[in-house]
């Protein structure tokens, strides 16, 4: 703390956005965008709208579906039968996704991975975390799922089936975690705060009521 730090040497600055060299795709995006705007095919208002829509994608969308399924048995049935229709019912965006909901029960713990790349239901969960795309996660999820889960602090009892879902083609998956105990009478909105992103991938359980304000 008390170490003197004299300033007879320069510190490197963090480079500003403009100083990094543009990739070929960034240049292509700028060229295409400017052309589309110039030719009145799309205007800046619409473009901002799309940006906002993309920025609003996040786990709060999936959490709405899960919390509703916890409270409303008819919605739960719809979610398990046709998860895309269940998303549409909440006016969520992914009408074009082939969505499958996987319910955790006392007998089955579901875990989602994409071993071939990084397929992920991003309209419902936002962008995938970096670890989801890592080789370690992608191989361990199918090869040593219980060990992987324990690294996330999730110990699955011996008598429970671990069921791993490899998102290898056109389906996208949403895990419906088990509703935590001692949440009877909670509103859907309050329950949403217990549904973490990780619980909808299947690497963790839903938050306990005591963890509600922790991330």
């Amino acid at each position: 703390m008390s170490l003197e730090h004299s300033h007879d040497h320069p510190h490197p600055n963090q480079p500003d956005e403009e100083d990094a060299e543009q990739s070929v795709y960034q240049k292509m995006e700028v060229a295409l965008r400017e052309l589309l705007v110039e030719k009145n095919i799309i205007n800046m208002e619409e473009l901002h709208g799309i940006h906002e829509q993309m920025d609003n994608r996040g786990p709060h969308n999936g959490a709405r579906m899960v919390a509703k399924a916890w409270c409303d048995p008819d919605y739960r049935d719809l979610l398990l039968l046709d998860a895309t229709a269940a998303a549409e019912k909440l006016d969520l965006e992914p009408t074009w996704l082939h969505l499958v909901a996987l319910e955790n029960t006392t007998n089955v713990h579901n875990l989602v991975v994409c071993t071939l790349c990084s397929c992920y239901p991003w309209p419902l969960l936002g962008l995938p975390p970096d670890w989801y795309k890592s080789r370690a996660y992608r191989s361990d999820a199918v090869n040593h799922p219980r060990k992987l889960l324990s690294q996330f602090g999730t110990i699955v009892p011996d008598e429970v089936e671990v069921r791993v879902h490899d998102s290898s083609a056109d389906m996208r998956y949403l895990v419906v975690p088990q509703r935590p105990k001692e949440t009877e009478g909670w509103t859907e909105e309050a329950l949403q705060s217990l549904v973490s992103r990780d619980s909808m991938i299947g690497v963790r359980r839903a938050r306990e009521p005591t963890q509600r304000n922790k991330q």
């Binding site: 040593h144 219980r146 060990k147 671990v162």
Partner: peptide, 11 residues
């Protein structure tokens, strides 16, 4: 190294 009832589902 898991349990015999563990499964994987692939498209």
């Amino acid at each position: 190294v898991g349990r015999p009832q563990d499964t994987v589902v692939v498209e």
